[in-house]
Amino acid sequence: MRDRIRSAEPADILLVEDNPGDIRLTQVAFEESRIANTLHVVTDGVAALDFLHQRGEYADAPRPDVVLLDLNLPRKDGDEVLADIGAGDTDLSLIPVIVLTSSKSEEDIVRSYDLQANAFLTKPVDPAEFIETIKRFEAFWLEVVRLPPEGSDRS
């Protein structure tokens, strides 16, 4: 796990979500968390890639520790974002990407993992269950999992 996640420095989480209600529920879950975090929100796939590649208005964006990615996005969908993340840039490909979507489709699940998603979570319809899912995600990905340090590559 990155030392900064275990330290007092907040974890940077990129939420790629276009539904205002789901954004708000995710914000509530992270506000109630025990782990210091900074939640960055973008609402479409193009903005997600700009954030990750630090382009345009996101030139000074931090490298996220984890990405929460919806599949059904405007401009570029989640599959296109996953494909870009996994295409060649080893620094980006080390960032865990968790698909967080309303889909329960086996096709979406298989395609997401084929595109190197690290996990696939289906959003519960009930708001309380949605918040609980986010809290469990956070506990696992930011407290239990060990992540490679920034600047690592796979070679």
Rank of each mutant, 00 (worst) to 15 (best):
F130S: 00
E80Q: 14
I131R: 14
S102P: 07
V144E: 13
V125K: 12
I131C: 07
D77F: 04
A128C: 05
A83S: 15
I134M: 09
S93C: 04
Q116S: 14
I85Q: 08
L115C: 11
D77P: 00
L82H: 06
S112L: 10
L121A: 02
S93W: 11
F120Q: 08
E107Y: 13
S112H: 08
E106C: 06
L92P: 07
P124L: 03
D70A: 07
F120P: 01
L121H: 04
W141Q: 06
V66A: 06
A119V: 05
G86R: 13
A117H: 06
F120A: 01
R136V: 09
V99Q: 05
A83N: 11
K104F: 07
L121I: 05
A139K: 12
V81G: 09
S93N: 10
I98R: 02
P62S: 00
N72S: 13
E129K: 14
N72V: 11
K104M: 12
A83H: 14
E80S: 10
E138L: 10
N72L: 10
Q116H: 15
A61E: 00
R75T: 04
L115H: 13
V110N: 03
P62H: 02
V66F: 03
Y113L: 10
L92K: 09
D79T: 07
G86V: 00
R136Y: 04
I98H: 09
D91H: 15
